[in-house]
Design a protein around this nucleic acid. Sequence first.
DNA 1: CGAAATGTTGACCAAGTTCAATAAGCGTGG
DNA 2: CCACGCTTATTGAACTTGGTCAACATTTCG
Lengths: 233, 233
Amino acid sequence: MSSCDLCVVRNRAICAALDSKELEALNAIGRTRNITSGESLIWEGEDSVLVANVIEGVLKLSTNTEDGREQIVGVVYPSDFIGRPFGGKSGHGVTALTDAKVCVFSRRDFDAFSREHPKLEHKLLERTLGELDRTRRWMLLLGRKSASEKMASFLIEMSERLTGSGCKVDADKPNQRHLVLPFSRQQIADVLGLTIETVSRQFTRLKNEGVIDLPSRRDVTILDYQALVAEAG
Amino acid sequence: MSSCDLCVVRNRAICAALDSKELEALNAIGRTRNITSGESLIWEGEDSVLVANVIEGVLKLSTNTEDGREQIVGVVYPSDFIGRPFGGKSGHGVTALTDAKVCVFSRRDFDAFSREHPKLEHKLLERTLGELDRTRRWMLLLGRKSASEKMASFLIEMSERLTGSGCKVDADKPNQRHLVLPFSRQQIADVLGLTIETVSRQFTRLKNEGVIDLPSRRDVTILDYQALVAEAG
DNA sequence: CGAAATGTTGACCAAGTTCAATAAGCGTGG
DNA sequence: CCACGCTTATTGAACTTGGTCAACATTTCG
């Protein structure tokens, strides 16, 4: 029995395409690794040397301009795939936003394995197509939305993606939900293409308007989900 | 002999993964279609009913906010793949920017075919991964770059992507090149997340600074490529 | 040739950034 | 446990970039 059988993302990650024998072979070339919050797994511009599956935690994908401005270009959650298979350089760094656990593979090993397992490649293709869709949707936000629309869209996206891990919905109050953000204010700004000050001002505005509550820095209670949807543009 | 043997993108599109027998089978489920400039092939939000390869021409992928703001989220050139295989809705419209020729497949037929041809799926995966990289790089531009940086980045990207079709480099003058844009000013604005006026002002500024020349609306002569690189951020 | 579409330019305005001061959390060590 | 210092977040005021609105120019096409 391979350790994959115990893996919590076994049925959601791309590994779900494999039977237990194949999984054992995959297990042989991978290993789990713990990453502490703030630690990087991959650096922007380096040759793609490893790929991984996220088992636990949240990580950001980010690029920087030469003069240090940052843009977060993706956020990955448990069962998501990380890295750039099939050559090339990594276009973005990968850094843990929370303590995380990942299942890493050398890129060369993974490439070889996946070429021999079309079902795995198929899963990876579906995942990549989905990620491309999501990324393109985010471009509309970056290119065309105002700060308030960005903020509302962000909170909606968070409440959707964190369902299960960082987001609770109370059955009595369907228009209300609570989330624990894996982001600092600066990181939210880097996701939305804004400054930290603008993010802060938007938070206080939404709070004053009674749309959200802010019990602590990382906690957001959405009091009026519909209002956010209306504001997201 | 299938008509694919005569196809100009035969060796660059995902079809390059197939031998002539397989190609014949693919040919049997596809057909070529001409599209005139401005015509749409796919609409945002519709169920994904067809996929295609671009044979000739340039097409845009775009999304809109409810109130009509547009963001171009991708631009495709000959040999590029269009559409969303494996279910789901199309997240963006696909519209020809020039007269174009594409090789279209019903999405269902294509899905079935590609599942039986891992080499094709592999090519599609490589292409999708590349497109995701490119898209993420564009997010840095949308989220963090100034109008002048966006404009310089745009001209550089165009001169790279149009090499062969719309861009000529004179061997004597390596710092200079000429391009024929497939975009109107409005479309450039929609790519860069700017207004048409800002794009226009940036063009005249670059012209006044002697970095480019503008022989006509659609023609740009880059006089100082290095200056653009320096300005792109 | 004239009308319609596309692009340019200018004056003004506003959203969001910048800079600076203040406040609130957070962790470490006494 | 609390005090101190450091980091992170909030708030305010001035400023800047790019957007808006409007007039005008140019190109395109019937």
